[in-house]
């Protein structure tokens, strides 16, 4: 219990202050944009639920430096992703990769939409064939 409380305290302590980059931004918008996208999509594994962009802990700033250096060295997005996943696993990606184990997760929007709309449309079509009673309370 005490350990849980301590862990929680550490997490919350990490939340209070913002992580702010002291390095200069990239001179071009393209690389700065990629940098910002990456630091928002990589999870700070140490603090459990914040992106490395938002965490002031040491590891987060080390990982931001890593991303910055890889972009500066002209490395591709695929290389950055591979670098992080090799070390921290898929957990580090806020955008879950498409694998056999996440097919259902990524198919959910389409499947649920089709299912819900399918049922709704079926009901609507069935009702539209029913007799429309004329209720005197037709106010709308």
């Amino acid at each position: 219990m005490k350990r849980v409380a301590l862990a929680l305290w550490l997490v919350l302590a990490a939340v209070g202050a913002r992580a702010i980059d002291t390095e200069a931004a990239f001179p071009d918008a393209e690389r700065q944009g990629r940098y910002e996208r990456w630091i928002h999509e990589l999870r700070c594994v140490q603090c459990q639920n914040a992106a490395i962009a938002d965490s002031p802990v040491g590891l987060a700033s080390d990982l931001r430096r890593q991303v910055r250096e890889m972009i500066a060295a002209g490395q591709s997005d695929a290389a950055i992703k591979a670098f992080m996943v090799e070390r921290y696993g898929d957990f580090v990606l806020y955008d879950p990769p498409l694998t056999a184990r996440t097919y259902a997760l990524w198919a959910a929007p389409a499947v649920l939409m089709l299912l819900a709309l399918g049922v709704a449309v079926r009901v609507i079509v069935r009702r539209s064939k029913a007799t429309i009673d004329s209720d005197p309370e037709d106010a709308a």
């Binding site: 259902a104 997760l105 959910a108 929007p109 649920l112 939409m113 819900a116 709309l117 049922v119 709704a120 009901v123 609507i124 079509v125 009702r127 539209s128 064939k129 029913a130 007799t131 429309i132 009673d133 209720d135 709308a140």
Partner: peptide, 28 residues
């Protein structure tokens, strides 16, 4: 009772289908 293909009831049913889908997606 019934209603036509284009009617308040039909729209509200679609609204429900979409809102519930959104909630289920977040749950997923």
């Amino acid at each position: 009772g019934g209603f036509e293909l284009v009617s308040r009831e039909a729209f509200l049913l679609l609204n429900n289908a979409l809102l519930v889908t959104a909630a289920l997606l977040i749950l997923t």
